[in-house]
Simulated scan of single mutants.
Amino acid sequence: MLSKGFEVEMYTSTPEGEIVGLSDKIVAELDGFVREPDSRNVEYTTPPCYRYERLLCDLVRPRVRLREYLKHLGNYTLTPGSTLALGGGDRFHRSDPSNPYHTYIEQTYGTRVVTASIHINVGISDPEVLLRACRLVRVEAPLYLALSAASPFLDGEVTGYHSTRWGLFPKTPAQVPLFESHLHFIRWTEQQLALGTMQNVRHLWSSVRPNGDRRPYNLNRLELRICDLVSDPVALLAITALLEARLIQLMQEPTLDPLQVSQLSAATRAQDLVALTDANEAAAARLSLDAELIHWQSGQPILARDWVEQLYGEVWAIAKKEGFSCFLTPLKKILREGNEAQRWLQLQQQGKDVASVVKQAIQDTANQELTLRDTLCQPLVA
């Protein structure tokens, strides 16, 4: 098994869904939380871990602790979803007005970056294996977006996206290649920094990127950045289990590399795969599991949910052998009942207004976290 960890971005709000900036107080009082450029977001990171049972508690415990602190501040809670669903998208709420990088972000992108998401990190120490993994995950990243979509609302309106976050997010730089090697990644990054298309080594906002302690030179993990905030920890672990099993499959079958096995012409394969993947990401942002994508291996159209089913069948035996297949099975529920965006849109289509849907989701999420804490993580809670 591979080591795994999460970066979790969340909104603080009232129980009615009004997003409120509290990160300055949270960061000052609670260990383990860091600020984002906008004060309405706060982030925590789970430590690298191999076992899914431990990962579940690592996800839940900080949120329960944060909820208790928010109650101490007043009538505040956490809001699921990845956009400013009920309002507040008209202006930035700076968390650190003196930070020049935050100034650049606000002036360049505005509130398009005031989103909440999950970044899934998986440890891979060999840089060439890591870059190969990034190539595979890049062309399949739309599937993880489809499973995780949770932002169909913005400023009180239905947007037409299942993931408004990814539909509007300013991917930076605008053109990111499939990196053919570690050296290619180093030279490309150095070039972007020289050109100013990246302000620093963190300023690579694509669906997946290689990460490490001294980027781009020392790398030790794959970071999947495309996922919306998955508020259900069990669903997040299922998505992560699919990713891990797929990476183990790649390590067992090194030829499972888009630059080697795609049906696209070898002469333009790298560029064509990027164009195909960008189109698939846009389609998944719109319709998530119901989106029609183009399979990178066959070049044929396929529904996102059917592609996920296909991968599930391919990696089930790997997950079973490694001992984590039980954490993969909740994917079936997502495919059957829909992701968060689809379930919220269904409620809205049945006659509930957006505010009521969000308010119910806030309460449901809080109840679920407390249940998980009490039933599965209680012995680990101080």
Rank of each mutant, 00 (worst) to 15 (best):
K4Q: 06
Y11D: 00
E18K: 14
L22K: 02
V34N: 13
V42L: 07
P48E: 01
C49R: 11
Y50Q: 13
R51V: 09
R51G: 07
E53A: 11
E53I: 05
C57F: 06
R61M: 14
H72C: 04
N75Q: 12
P80D: 09
A85P: 00
R94D: 13
S98V: 11
H102A: 04
T103N: 14
E106Y: 04
E106A: 11
Y109A: 07
G110S: 00
V114D: 09
V122T: 11
P127T: 04
P127G: 02
E128L: 00
L147V: 01
A149D: 04
G156V: 05
Y161Q: 01
Y161R: 01
Q175C: 10
H184K: 04
H184V: 03
I186F: 02
Q191V: 09
Q192H: 10
L193Y: 05
A194H: 15
T197M: 06
M198I: 00
N200S: 14
H203M: 07
N211M: 10
E223S: 09
C227Q: 11
S231E: 15
P233N: 06
V234T: 12
I239K: 04
E244G: 04
R246E: 12
L250R: 08
E253C: 11
P254V: 13
T255F: 14
T255E: 14
L256M: 12
R269Q: 05
D272Y: 07
V274K: 05
N280D: 08
S288I: 00
I302L: 07
D306H: 03
D306S: 06
Q310M: 12
K320C: 10
K321A: 15
C326S: 14
K333W: 14
L335I: 01
R336C: 11
R343P: 03
L347S: 13
Q349H: 12
Q350I: 04
A355Q: 14
V358R: 08
K359T: 13
K359G: 01
Q363Y: 13
L372I: 15
R373F: 15
D374V: 02
T375G: 05
Q378V: 01
P379I: 00
A382V: 09
